[in-house]
Each structure stands twice: as structure tokens, then as C-alpha cells.
Design a protein around this nucleic acid. Structure first.
Lengths: 184, 184, 184, 184
DNA sequence: TATGAATGAGCTTTCATTCAT
DNA sequence: TATGAATGAAAGCTCATTCAT
């Protein structure tokens, strides 16, 4: 990939940020024009950077995925094995509550965002977190990564619910964690 | 409202069925025209029955809600208190796997489908199921209806995931049920 | 023309009256459905009597024309020669103020209402009124029927103006009558 | 508002001209699609410039009003006081004969074209013309601006009549002018 | 004959995408 | 490279007209 000119990269990032905000607020059916306006660029500039609306959606998902993967790695490296998975879980749900995109990503897209199996990418670090939690006896031995991924997607979606509050989040996650827990 | 003419009612139902199918396949952004085609009627007929696309979406959601509420009541009446809630839970998730609409409904709509707080309607029978399960000692006493609703929405969404299989569903739900369980 | 059944004729007249009212209020672009509703019949009945929307418009115009022609004849027979033309003139403008249709008719239709030169029909009795007024010395000798018709159409249109009041009508017509007048 | 790009302004004007022509021929119910075709642009371009069909109609009326107001001012500045009002009057009627829009404007619109009381704008320069004519003794002292406006609207409408010819126009206007005249 | 549901062409409007400036 | 005007394919919706009941 050629090195972008400094102003071009700056634009790219502003567009991405604007898109994230707009799609978070209005859903993926928001218009590209609105993204351009929010980014303070002309519509043509958006399409120069992202030839298709789907490319734009895809880039958002990819960026998000990158952040989540990093966070998972961070927890895997730094957190206590017994709690790292739960911390990551909570982190994802919090993000989802803030940005609709998280839920969209985890639920497979809704829109036709196929970033080459985005979830597969995330599944690896999650698997690591899971293994450690199991080794530490914090999670039942028979739980498999795909169940955790499913629960992750599920909880993210719940975060979009009408009456979602920090309190409801805590109580709901407690049930999930309890279900995952080695004992009870 | 006068009794609809026989052919009118027939059409109304065909349109509703077609819409359910089309929106399940293509999501709520599918075109009304396609619904008409699938139902084998002209576009004007769709609009005579449902003056707005949103009315059509709303009617689907309402019908679905009706089915779910009935099912909840059936379980409350017939099922064993210890398992009725879980059975209903599983039923909802199965429906969700078959029809994208279930997840859409439970997650608040996406589209502007405000069937007078659809979830509130469902919350009542679910609350009954929950209370009985708790009285039978099958579910922890401190679980509240809103958590169950959140988990319901969550699990329905998970059912839309890529690799969702009956096996994955069973394992995922087992975790949730375990988390809800009185013991653990 | 076959004799209509009593109820059929009753319907025909109710539709005509409703149409006159609706088109007067909403203009000729009002929907046929609204006419049917106002008449208290189904849409099919309207089309049975008037196969085309234009036929309906035409029938209204024809009825109106009939009324105006009768009024002209009445004035020609009963009124004083010096004032009969002016009385008729005022009468037409008053009708126009009440029913938009009059103006539409006199201005040629706007819509494609070609009732075989409707104005020609009216021109004859107007011509009579004019001739008598001229013979009585109330109108200049060089005025011709087509000018009177034009002024009639013109004044009818003015009656649709925003600030049209009886006072404004009187002052405006006075100018026209003055202009027509033998002396001044 | 930024200066429009050259091609954009060119298009805007072509659209306006096309619209004027199309609506003049077919009336205000002509389709926007036809306007686009006549202007040689795509339908989207029309709606970029005039977001609504009504905006398009409004723009035409506004342009026309501008022209008429200018003409009135020109007559007020340049013409002989005794004839300026009559010249303007004739000018308006001539325009009306050429463009159906004039009559539509003067008669209040028909469509929902509310260019902030368009007639009020025109009433001022007309009032000036009237006052001068009265001061010059060419028009009776008791004539008021609203009557002149009404006659203007009236005569414009008459210009749309079937058999309207320059000859008929002259004879009709002569009657109106005679009616307005100081003497007779 | 009356009914009113069905038809379907056509309308206004939106928006992802292209391309001249 | 950025701009934003132009494109044109839908989309949702309306309504004169037809036709089964």
C-alpha cells in the first residue's frame, strides 16, 4: 500500500470517525452524504477513500475488531486469569452499548459486511482468555470458544435494548458469568 | 370495521406471509414491491392493506408477538413449573433462528416499529413463567423479569450468528439456564 | 337515453352534487374517491355513472352551463333591458365566488373539459341581453358579445382572489360596467 | 450561498426555462419527469435544484413576479403618467396570453405556491402607477389599488380564453380602461 | 345495479455512485 | 487530491380505472 499523503490520511481518519458516529446514531441505513457532512468533507472524498458504502462499513468493523482484539490481548497479558475473560466480556458489552456497530459486527452484520469472517479473528484471543480461565478453575472445563462467542454476540445485542442500564447490565452479566462459572 | 370480503382477507394473509418470508430473508430493507410479487398481488394491493411499509412491518411484529405470547401462556398453563420457562426460552430462540423478525422485535425493532411497547406485552407472561420457576426452586430467587427479557433478546440475536447449529444452541442455552438455575 | 331506475337517478344526482362540492373546495385535482365518499356511494358507482373522471367534470360544467343559460334567459325575459345584462353579470360573478367551477368553466377548463364549446352555448343568451341593453342605450353600441364573454370570464376569475369581498366586488364591477356604459 | 458552479447555474436556468414551458403547455399538473426531459437533464438534477415540485413551481412564480415588478418600476420611471398604468396592464395581459403561469399567479396559485403573498409585492408598484395616473387625471380618483389588482387578475385570466386574439384583447382592455378613465 | 378490492402506470423523492471541474 | 453537481435506478406511495362478488 502506497504511503498516503498526510492530509489524505487525516481525511481518511476523519471520515472513519464520522461514519462510526453517524452509523452508531442512525444505524447502517444512514446516508453516506451525512457521513461526509459530519466529517466536513465533500461526498466525493468519502468515495475516494472508500469506493463503496460497504467498504466504509467494512472499515469500521475492521477497526472495531482491531480494538477488541487488542483489548483481548491486553487482558490476556495483564489480567488475572480468573477474571480476564469476564473483564473482556464486560468491556465488549460496554462498547456495544455505546456503539451500535459492535452488536452489528458480532451478530454477523445485518448489512453485507463480510470482513473475511471477522469473528474468526476475534475467536483466537477469546479462546486464549477462555483457556486460561478454565486452567484457573474459574470457568467450567466443558465450555467451548464458540459458546463464548455466541454469548458475547448475545449480550452485545441485549445492550441495545430499551431499558438497558448499568444495573440491568450487571445483573444480566452476572447470570451469564454464573452459568459459565466452574462452581456457582 | 366491517367483515372483510373473503378474497380480501385471503390477500391480506398472503401478503403478511410473503412479507414475513421476504423480510426474514432480506431484512427489513427489502422492498415492498418484492413482497407484492411474492404474494402474487399488485403493489397497490399491498398498500391498500398496509398504507405504509411500517404498517406492514408492524403487522408482522404484532402477529409474531401474538404467537409468542400465546406460547408463553400455553407453557404457563400446561408445562411443569420447573421447566416451562426454559421451554419457552428455547422456543423463542428456535423461532428466532428461523425468522430474523424475532430478533428484530426483541432487540427493539431497528425500524420504527413501535407496536406500543411490544416487549411490555410479552413481559407479563414471561414474568408469570419466571415466578412459577422460582416458586418451584428451579430459578434463583433474585432474578428479575427484565434480566430474563434481556437474556431472551440476547439469545435470539445469537441465533442469527454464522455457525449457529442445534448443538451450539444447546450448549449456549445450557450456560444461560445454568446461570439462572437455583443451584448451579 | 333509456329511462334510469329511480334509485339510479337519485345516485347520479347525489354524485353530481358531491362532485360539485368537492371540486369547488379542492379544485379539479381532488380524487374521485373523495367524491364517492362525500356522495355516500362506492367508487364503482361513480364510474358506472361517469365512465371517466373527465366525464364527471364535464357533467358538472354542463349542469352549471344549463343553470347559467336559464338565468340569462330569465333575465332576458323578465328584467329591465337597461339592467338585465348587469344583473346577469353580477349573478355569474357571485356564483363564481361560491363555486370555483364557474371560473374553471369560463376560463376554458384548465382540465381538459371540452363540453363542445360550452361558451358558445352561453354566448347566445348573453348576446341577447347585450343587444337589449344596447337598444336601451345602457351599453355602447360598438361592444360585441365576445368582449362581454371575456369580461365575464375575467370577473369570475377575479372572484377567486384572496381578498375578494362584496365591497371589492362592487367596486370592481362598477369599473367594468362603467366601461361598458353608453355614457360614463 | 456560495456562487454556483458555472454548469450548475446553466442547468438551473435550463430547468427553470423547461419548467416554465412545460407548465405553460400542460398546466401545473405536468410531471417533473417531463420537465427534466425537456431540460435535457436527469430527474435527480431537477430535484437537486428544487427539492420539491412545489419549490419548482414557486421558483417560476418568483421569477415571473420579479419580471413583472421590474416592468412596473420601468413604466413608473419612464412612461408618461397618463399611460404608464395602461401600458403595464397591457404588458401583463400579453404575458398572460403567452404563459399560463401569469394567470395562475395572479389568481392565487391553484397549487400551493405561497411566495409570501406574491401579489402584495406587486401591489406596491401598481399602486404607484395608479397614483400617478390619477394625479395626471387619467384615472378616476376613487379607484383603489385592490380594484386594479383584481382587474389585472381578471384580464390575465381572460387571456387564456379560447378565442383570444389581439383584436379581442384590445377591445376588452379598452372597456376596462374606459371604466377606469377619469372621463368616459 | 351497487360494491369495494385489485390493478398498475406514474409520480415524487432518495441516495449510492460517477465524473467534470 | 478534493469538490460537489449530475446521474439514474429504485423506493414508497397515489389514484383513475377495472372487475369479481
Amino acid at each position: 500500500m502506497t504511503q498516503l499523503r498526510a492530509d489524505a490520511r487525516r481525511n481518511r481518519e476523519r471520515i472513519l470517525a464520522a461514519a462510526e458516529a453517524v452509523f452508531a446514531e442512525r444505524g447502517a441505513s444512514a446516508s453516506t452524504e451525512e457521513v461526509a457532512a459530519r466529517a466536513g468533507v465533500a461526498i466525493g472524498t468519502v468515495f475516494r477513500h472508500f469506493p463503496t458504502k460497504n467498504d466504509l462499513l467494512g472499515a469500521i468493523v475492521k477497526a472495531l475488531l482491531h480494538r477488541l482484539t487488542e483489548e483481548a490481548a491486553r487482558q490476556a497479558g495483564a489480567g488475572a486469569p480468573e477474571t480476564a475473560l469476564f473483564s473482556f466480556f464486560t468491556h465488549v458489552v460496554e462498547e456495544a452499548a455505546a456503539r451500535r456497530t459492535v452488536a452489528a459486527l458480532l451478530s454477523g452484520g445485518g448489512v453485507d459486511v463480510r470482513v473475511d469472517k471477522p469473528l474468526t479473528q476475534l475467536e483466537e484471543p477469546v479462546g486464549t482468555l477462555l483457556r486460561r480461565a478454565q486452567e484457573a478453575g474459574a470457568v467450567r472445563a466443558d465450555v467451548r470458544p464458540d459458546e463464548v462467542m455466541a454469548l458475547l454476540a448475545a449480550a452485545s445485542q441485549a445492550a441495545l435494548l430499551g431499558g438497558w442500564t448499568p444495573d440491568l447490565r450487571d445483573r444480566t452479566l452476572r447470570i451469564v458469568f454464573e452459568g459459565l462459572g466452574a462452581r456457582g
